[in-house]
């Protein structure tokens, strides 16, 4: 797959730089002293981590540990009680809404259920951001949308509505939409949830392809061990009990060297797996 960065327009119609996160610049994502809270209830505190260029960064932890909530904080869907999220030199947390919107156009997000707009066909779903933020003609938008759908194995489904396809296909269509603008940072919320093992494996392969060929930095929220070991090269572990990050690093290194029993218990399915169920992706 060739890198095909599309020129993105700003809200005033001017074209903006396509590369917000040059390789020789600061890390694309830095989270500093983040505290997540609902009212007075602190869900997680003192979260600090850096995601480097080309990382497939895994946010892992048990159910209810706040993985998806952390993702929503990173995307600006929830305001942090404390701390900041930086994208390169851009302080996302303190930015004005319009500046945020422009930054968000450099991101792609795949939600748990796909979150496709149900009143639009798959081609319209993928084509919407292209129509909104590029100068492409309608014919070109249709072509790009068809290409993106073909990349996720949905060639020929352009005119289907989300309700006419399966859950796994919806998720893939959601991915096609997420990569519509060739984003520099991709976020995946539980990409394997609800997928059969083969579809899950194919999605993992696709994530690796996107990183290798689009040069995207990828953040994945998951607790699927197979995916964690197969694609992740950096990670944090959220612990619901201590309400903070208790481990950071390559998941395979954490399995080999981390002495924290909570991390070991998680990475070995409560001690059942002596070895990670990592798959060799070559």
């Amino acid at each position: 797959m060739a890198t095909t960065l599309l020129p993105i327009s700003s809200s005033d119609g001017k074209r903006v730089s396509v590369t917000r996160f040059p390789k020789d610049g600061p890390p694309p994502i830095i989270v500093r002293n983040l505290t997540m809270a609902y009212g007075t209830f602190v869900l997680m505190k003192d979260i600090n981590f850096t995601v480097n260029h080309g990382d497939i960064f895994i946010i892992m932890g048990g159910s209810g540990s706040g993985k998806s909530t952390l993702l929503r904080h990173m995307l600006g869907l929830i305001e942090p009680a404390k701390g900041e999220v930086w994208y390169g030199n851009f302080n996302f947390t303190r930015a004005e809404p319009l500046q945020r919107e422009e930054m968000l156009r450099h991101f792609g997000v795949l939600y748990q259920g796909g979150a496709l707009w149900s009143s639009m066909t798959l081609a319209e779903n993928v084509g919407l951001p292209l129509g909104e933020f590029t100068d492409l003609s309608l014919a070109e938008i249709r072509e790009v949308a068809a290409l993106k759908l073909a990349l996720v194995g949905l060639k020929g489904f352009e005119n289907y509505y989300p309700s006419q396809i399966s859950g796994g296909m919806q998720k893939r269509a959601g991915l096609a939409r997420a990569i519509a603008l060739d984003p520099e940072i991709l976020f995946f919320d539980e990409p394997s949830a609800g997928l059969d093992p083969i579809s899950s494996r194919l999605l993992d392969d696709l994530i690796l392809e996107l990183r290798d060929n689009l040069g995207a930095t990828i953040v994945v929220v998951t607790h699927e061990l197979a995916s964690i070991f197969a694609i992740g090269n950096n990670s944090i572990f959220l612990d619901a009990e201590s309400r903070t990050v208790i481990a950071q690093g390559d998941p395979k290194d954490l399995l080999a060297h981390c002495t924290d029993h909570r991390v070991q218990t998680f990475l070995t399915r409560g001690g059942q797996d002596a070895q990670p169920s990592a798959r060799n992706h070559g």
């Binding site: 995307l75 156009r105 979150a115």
Partner: peptide, 18 residues
Amino acid sequence: GSMKVTQEIDALTTMGIS
């Protein structure tokens, strides 16, 4: 409301569309 439940509104927000 349904769009909120299925995160369709979040998808718009994180795409930079109000």
